[in-house]
């Protein structure tokens, strides 16, 4: 098997695909955003609930997708709980830049999200990895209910 494939499908990715964290609907969400990847038709719905200080109190997602999009969304939900809007958007920028190759992956800042770095060698899969993240950005910065990665 090629090293590049093993780099893409790291154990963390496979684990989060098999057993996605925070998977399900959130009844009392403040924001519900649907993300669509028109390339493959994958859909994902992201639910975000803020606390009284504006921090992300809870976040969930539902939908069907490839291992990369599911694992990426799962890792994201795990990471962003408790973050402020600005912190979450900063994280979005970091992950975006790493996925698109504008920034080298910093293992300290990325922590578990570093598992997504293998996607950089697969340009056709970057949209899969960023689907949940774009939904997050939309949820935090707009009042739109739908986004598309294209």
């Amino acid at each position: 098997m090629s090293d590049s494939l093993l780099d893409l499908y790291r154990e963390v990715i496979l684990d989060h695909n098999r057993d996605p964290r925070n998977f399900g609907e959130l009844d009392d969400a403040d924001r519900v955003v649907e993300g669509v990847n028109p390339l493959c038709g994958d859909r994902m719905t992201l639910y975000v609930k803020k606390d009284k200080d504006g921090k992300i109190e809870d976040v969930c997602f539902t939908g069907s997708g490839c291992a990369i999009s599911v694992a990426s969304a799962s890792l994201m939900t795990e990471r962003i709980k408790g973050l402020t809007n600005d912190e979450a958007l900063e994280l979005f920028e970091l992950v975006h830049d790493v996925l698109t190759g504008e920034q080298e992956p910093d293992p300290v800042r990325l922590d578990k999200l570093a598992a997504l770095a293998g996607v950089r060698q697969y340009p056709s899969r970057i949209k899969c990895a960023s689907l949940g993240w774009h939904a997050l950005k939309t949820a935090l910065t707009t009042t739109d209910a739908k986004i598309s990665t294209e």
Partner: peptide, 29 residues
């Protein structure tokens, strides 16, 4: 349960070109 996109990426590394997705026929899917 393996998503078609993951299949496509993996067989591609073996030099195998297949189509994955909705094939411009979303109602069929």
């Amino acid at each position: 349960d393996i998503h078609a996109h993951d299949l496509g990426t993996i067989v591609d590394r073996e030099g195998v070109a297949i189509r994955t997705g909705h094939h411009c026929a979303m109602p069929v899917m």
